[in-house]
């Protein structure tokens, strides 16, 4: 479904963060990228959603290379990223925030209206707080709204950047079930997660990233059981950090 081939990327004039990343995300799977701080996990997502232009390599969606396309073009192809944090627009209401998810399809009013109603059904929070400003939401509620916003386009691929960040256990569990429900409708999910156990417990496959390269790929369950994993994270090898 999505194949990363020899992906090299970095910011500004600084060195490369990703130094040749190769892995594939199977259609309809949940894949979780794990790795220590600064391994380049978020950078993979940024190149995939178009925020960052790759220096080398390809990102194939099916057979089309989407590396270097604008975020709008990638959104139209059905690939949506949920931002890490501060992604909501605090001066707008919850409803407006969610509706903005369909920005690239803004001409299709009827469809957007119907889709919003569907989403408000799935997430009761959206319906309850529709007219409140996003600034009034708690951290967990914001995540939910960000997640719901990403669904406005009926995406085929959802990219989640550290979904558990700042969430309490209850909110984490809710989020996990939302992700699984989404996946059961056939959506491919690529997650980046610092909290390894949480991320892998949702996922089918795991990808271990370190120092801008893929160290290891396998089934998520195997990875969780792997005793080396504990060492890798509690051992915390840190090589490079994002600027």
């Amino acid at each position: 479904m999505i194949t990363f081939k020899g992906l090299v990327a970095g910011y500004g004039r600084a060195g490369d963060i990703l130094r040749g990343v190769d892995f594939a995300v199977a259609e309809g799977s949940i894949t979780c990228i794990v790795g220590p701080n600064g391994a380049g996990k978020s950078t993979v997502l940024k190149t995939c959603s178009g925020l960052l232009r790759p220096r080398k390599g390809q990102i194939l969606l099916g057979s089309q290379d989407i590396g270097g396309l604008t975020p709008a073009a990638i959104l139209r192809l059905g690939v949506v990223q949920v931002p890490q944090h501060h992604g909501l627009f605090p001066t707008l209401t919850v409803r407006e925030n969610v509706q903005l998810g369909a920005y690239v399809n803004r001409r299709q009013r009827e469809r957007n209206r119907a889709r919003y109603e569907e989403i408000a059904q799935i997430f009761p929070l959206i319906a309850e707080r529709a007219n409140d400003r996003a600034a009034s939401l708690s951290g967990g509620q914001r995540r939910t709204v960000e997640f719901a916003r990403a669904l406005m386009l009926n995406p085929g691929v959802v990219l989640l950047d550290e979904p558990s960040l700042g969430l309490d256990p209850k909110a984490c569990r809710q989020l996990a079930s939302s992700v699984k429900a989404l996946n059961q409708q056939g959506v491919t999910v690529l997650i980046v997660e610092q909290n390894v156990r949480f991320g892998l417990s949702m996922a089918d496959n795991g990808v271990v990233l370190e120092g801008g390269r893929v160290l290891h790929t396998s089934g998520a369950a195997e990875l969780l059981a792997d005793p080396d994993m504990g060492a890798l994270f509690f051992g915390g090898t840190t090589r490079e950090t994002q600027p």
Binding site: P71, L100, V104
Partner: peptide, 23 residues
């Protein structure tokens, strides 16, 4: 309007706005 909301979106979170396709 979409324009007005995208103006507000771009003002408050540049990356968040780009991720929903706002130029």
């Amino acid at each position: 309007t979409w324009l007005g909301q995208s103006v507000q979106a771009a003002a408050s979170s540049s990356d968040g706005a780009r991720l929903i396709g706002i130029e």
